[in-house]
Design a protein around this nucleic acid. Structure first.
Length: 586
RNA sequence: GGGCUCGUAGUGAAGUGGUUAUCACGCCUCCCUGUCACGGAGGAGAUCGCCGGUUCGAACCCGGUCGAGCCCGCCA
């Protein structure tokens, strides 16, 4: 029993039984219309007074009552057809109606197009999910999973689930801990990623592994980052090099998702590989949105002797002067707002020039020679009607400020075409990075990646020059995939941690299983993991990941519907020998 | 932990110092035989997040607090 689905069209004169929710009721006194909704959409029920009992019953119906109606499918008169719903050519003239369940007045309306506060939507997510947009989203996620599974299966990948109750890992994000009842004082942890398990599968002779894996991280969320748990298409391959993962396995899949699954256009069919440092220099970001032009240009050489102290001093102190060109003249107040943003990112200010009649116009042009001004315009290729924004400081700060400004201007100038997907690989990440505050060396990215050059590279003096055999994919400014050629050599793994001052005992205590495994014939292997929530968000044109998840936590890590986290029974705490300091007990 | 923005009937919004806080949707009652966001008449529903202060007078100004969203930190 179902409503009017596209697969089984109902014809004029058919008897039909339909079940669903009352989407809206239009009571004309002597004639009642009900829009009945189920997962396939809407159908109009027409209840005439001749069907005496049904008419009486229909008068008592309210929004979101669950009902079953029996009647006759009837072709509507031409002028009564409703092109807005798929079953709009017909209606069900009802004989009998049965209320399967009633509904109280709703806290949030299902049949409305007005925006509803996210807090209310999440509190009543089961009502929110009844809305067609959310139904569509759930279907699309399932469809995406199917595309992924078919693709991986066809490439001889084996789907293997790895433990959810696992071990705390010392590097990376904050863990969710799970206390052990049997082993007092000890803890499991929910995995941040199946990283170690999948590498152990490679050692275990699994040729190609994948799973759509739940990952758990206790870090503060963002619009593009869920709190607590998220899903990755996690894959790993043995006896391969980077190219086989990147070109032969993941690129065809992601292109298929962009074009066939999402119906969007690729900015370019060839997916560029951009070294990390080049990305930072050109875009001020390691996850650039390539739909936006406006690359960062280095003017340090041209302006090192200029009369503008802010610039020349920055350059003399080892910094840089860079600029981006926006194709718009901004108002004073717009400039002020942009300046505020730049300052929030750490800039001292936001110098700018406009281009009018081929000449630079600005309150600061007086500090520059005519030749310098001409050089600025010609090197940037700036045209009349453009605004040039400058950044001057140490390279990393200029990149950050102008990179952030570039992305923002991409929104302001409407340069992010939602029908276009721009992909890029960012490669050659620094293996180690210097913490600017503490001056200490730390991992730049994934410590399990193979350093390019292996043991030899690790012994070089310039640790910051060591590059990881690692590749991240960027989609429209979001990191959607991270992968690498793994370090399968125990000697190199000891050394990787040794550079940071960790001795062999430490490495063995934290990664003993993997180290041991690598001593028994670990095959070379490589892989990656796609963030499926983020991919779905971008492919569905959403700007918040919570929109593509059935039951997300809110921005404070709270499930306002289920009211988790929550306190637990004392007995449970006693069994685990856990105690806690009570918060104010109201 | 920090910054910015916000908090007004069930929902979404208006109201920037002055009688009884406005509107739309929803809800309740009545009328209505072709609507599809049906229409019409009437009605109920708000301690303006909470606490304190300034003022003759506060939804509005100030301080604090709680909650939400976005961002920074954080996210190998």
């Amino acid at each position: 029993m179902r409503t009017f689905s596209n697969e089984t069209p109902n014809k004029h004169g058919d008897k039909a039984t339909v079940q669903g929710w009352v989407h809206s009721r239009r009571d004309h006194g002597g004639l009642i219309f009900i829009d009945l909704r189920d997962h396939t959409g809407l159908v109009q029920l027409t209840i005439r007074p001749e069907a005496k009992q049904a008419f009486h019953d229909a008068q008592g119906l309210r929004d979101e009552f669950v009902v079953e109606a029996v009647g006759t499918v009837t072709e509507r008169d031409e002028k009564l057809k409703n092109p807005n719903i798929s079953s709009g050519d017909v209606e069900l003239v009802v004989d009998t109606i049965r209320v399967l369940n009633k509904s109280e007045a709703l806290p949030i309306q299902v049949n409305t197009s007005q925006t509803i506060n996210e807090d209310s939507r999440l509190r009543y997510r089961y009502l929110d999910l009844r809305r067609s947009a959310m139904q569509r989203m759930l279907k699309k996620r399932a469809e995406m999973y199917t595309v992924m599974r078919h693709y991986m299966d066809a490439l001889d990948f084996t789907e293997i689930t790895t433990p959810i109750i696992a071990n705390s890992s010392p590097e990376g994000a904050r863990d969710f801990l799970v206390p052990s009842r049997i082993h007092k004082g000890q803890f499991y942890a929910l995995p941040q990623a199946p990283q170690q398990f999948k590498q152990l599968l490679m050692v275990g002779g699994v040729h190609r592994y994948y799973q759509i894996a739940a990952c758990f991280r206790d870090e503060d969320p963002r619009a593009d980052r869920l709190y607590g748990e998220f899903y990755q298409l996690d894959l790993e391959m043995s006896f391969v090099e980077a190219g086989e993962v990147v070109r032969e396995t993941t690129e065809p899949l992601i292109k298929k998702l962009v074009t066939e699954f999402a119906g969007k256009k690729l900015l370019s069919d060839d997916i560029p590989r951009i070294p990390y440092h080049e990305a930072m220099d050109r875009f001020g970001s390691d996850k650039p949105d390539l739909r936006i032009g406006m690359e960062l240009n280095d003017l340090s050489t041209d302006l090192k002797d200029c009369g503008f102290g802010v610039f020349s001093n920055a350059i003399q102190n080892g910094g840089v002067v860079k600029a981006i060109v926006a194709q718009k003249l901004f108002s004073r107040s717009e400039i002020d707002k942009l300046t505020e943003r730049a300052k929030a990112d750490g800039a001292g200010g936001l110098p700018y020039m406009t281009v009018e009649n081929g000449r630079a116009v600005s309150s600061i042009t007086k500090f520059f020679s005519d030749q310098e001004l001409d050089t600025i315009i010609s090197n940037l290729g700036a045209q009349d009607g453009d605004t040039i924004f400058f950044g001057s400081d140490v390279r990393s700060k200029v990149n950050k400020v102008l990179g952030s400004l570039r992305s923002h201007l991409g929104d302001v100038l409407d340069l992010k075409d939602p029908s276009v997907i721009a992909l890029a690989w960012i490669i050659d990440f620094p293996f180690y990075e210097m913490d600017e505050k503490t001056g200490k060396l730390d991992f730049g990215h994934n410590p399990f990646s193979m350093p390019k050059g292996g043991l030899e590279a690790l012994e070089s003096d310039d640790k910051l020059a060591i590059v990881a055999d690692q590749y991240d994919m960027v989609m429209n400014g979001y990191e959607i995939c991270s992968g690498g050629v793994r370090n399968h050599n125990p000697e190199v793994l000891y050394k990787v941690f040794g550079v940071l001052g960790f001795d062999e005992d430490y490495v063995e205590s934290k990664f003993g299983a993997m180290l041991n495994a690598f001593k028994f014939g670990a095959p070379p292997h490589a892989g990656c993991a796609f963030g499926v929530d983020r991919i779905l968000m971008e492919l569905l044109g959403e700007d918040n990941v919570r929109e593509v998840v059935a039951f997300p936590k809110n921005g404070s890590g709270v499930d306002v519907m289920m009211q988790s986290p929550s306190t637990v029974d004392q007995q449970l705490l006693d069994e685990l020998e856990l105690s806690h300091t009570p918060q104010n007990t109201e």
